[in-house]
Write a protein that binds this DNA or RNA. Structure first.
Lengths: 115, 115
DNA sequence: CGCATATTCAACCAACTGGTTGACATTCCT
DNA sequence: AGGAATGTCAACCAGTTGGTTGAATATGCG
């Protein structure tokens, strides 16, 4: 999916879609299950998922009746790079950040407690 | 400015507004000068600047006839933290990451080296 | 087959967006 | 004072967005 900054940021601008992404962070989900906690129609959620797919933020794979939604975090990287590139991480100790990342990634116990 | 993720992301979703932010990265600018490189009316740019201000991404200060626009990179921090939770920080301890960010950004010695 | 499940499609609607133009208010300059 | 420069405001317009409902399309199950 060719996901421009336009489509990525505009997909992220909606709270429902951000909530969906947060849900998918925990696990892949079927469309119906994604829709369950929201107080809106399934069709509306289906549209939101189309937007997220268009932005490359998720991918959808049909297996039988069920369409599974999967987070595609790579799509956020471009947007993240854009933000950092123009200085938003100003003053941040990137070396410390790298060390922090390494520490996190090295400790397998932390990886399990995804909420 | 109370800038929600909604307003920040939706402000960033427009290429004209992102271009404006990139311009302001180099220096503070007057509204007319911001508008100059774009092929649209001054009023349209004025509206874009209002959106950016509403998102807290810039601030505007009137001095005489001229209204100066200034980048406010702090507004991106909240959005960035949110985004980082998905990409590189996938599966990590997000609370620890937030604490890390807070600690980094709270240290005034680091904040001075803004360019 | 016949029915329930899962998901999308199509038409519709109100609200918002991003642009236009022309008029207006300030401020600076001479 | 008069005129140019700087911005904003108001009205308007076309296109998009985010939601609805009802019908349609597959797929799985007994």
């Amino acid at each position: 999916m060719a996901a421009s900054l336009d489509t990525v940021f505009s997909a992220l601008a909606d709270p429902t879609r951000r909530a969906i992404l947060a849900m998918l962070l925990e696990d892949d989900m079927a469309v119906t299950d994604v829709a369950e906690p929201f107080e809106m129609s399934l069709a509306a959620i289906s549209k939101h998922l189309t937007v997220l797919t268009g932005a490359g933020l998720i991918s959808q794979e049909r297996r039988g009746r069920v369409k599974w939604c999967k987070l595609e975090p790579d799509a956020l990287r471009e947007a993240s790079v854009w933000m950092q590139g123009f200085g938003m991480m100003n003053g941040l100790d990137l070396d410390a950040f790298e060390r922090f990342l390494d520490a996190e990634l090295a400790d397998p116990s932390l990886l399990e407690e995804k909420e």
